[in-house]
Amino acid sequence: MSQPLLFYALSLLAIVGAVGLLMFKHPMNAAMSFAVTLIALAGLYGLLSATLVFAIQLIVYAGAIMSLILFIIMFLNIQPDDLPDESGYWYYLAGGAAALTPLALLLLYGINSLSVTSTPEAPPGFGTIKEVGVVLFTDWLLPFEIVSILLLVALVGAVVLAGKREGGND
C-alpha cells in the first residue's frame, strides 16, 4: 500500500522538474530538469495503470525527443554569453502568474465539481497493448492514418529545412 506515497513523491518530482525548467538559465540544465519531469510523469502513468503509455512515454518522450533536444543543444555549442538577457524575468513571471490565475482557478473549480472521491478498481487488462490497440485500430483509425501523414510531412520538412546549404538556393 505504498501507492499513494509513490504517487505524491512522483508528483513532487514532476513539479520540481517543471519549476527547474523555468528557473535554470542554461538550456542544458533546463533540459535535464525537464527530463526529470518526463520520467516522473512516466511513473505516474504507470500508477494510473496505463502500461502502454508508460512505456511509450519513456521511449518516445524521455528517450527520443529529449535526446534530440540535448543533441541539438550540444550541437549549437552554447556559451554563457550567447544566452539571451533575461533581466525582466520576475516582472514577466508576476504578470504571467496574475494572468494565469483565473484560468487555473476555473480548471480547479471544474475538477472539484467532478467530485471524484474514490479510485475505482481498474478492470483486468486495462491499459495493456491489446486493449489500446483494439481501440486505436477501430474507433481511431482515421486519426491514426492522419498522424502517419503528419509524421511524413514533418520528416520531409525537417530534412528540407535543416539540410539547406549556406549560399545555396536560399
Partner: peptide
C-alpha cells in the same frame, strides 16, 4: 493543471528559444 500552467508561464517568461 499545475504542469500546464507552469508550461504557459515558461512560454510567457523565458526568452531562450530552447
Amino acid at each position: 493543471v499545475a504542469l500546464f500552467c507552469l508550461g504557459v508561464l515558461g512560454v510567457i517568461t523565458r526568452r531562450n528559444v530552447f
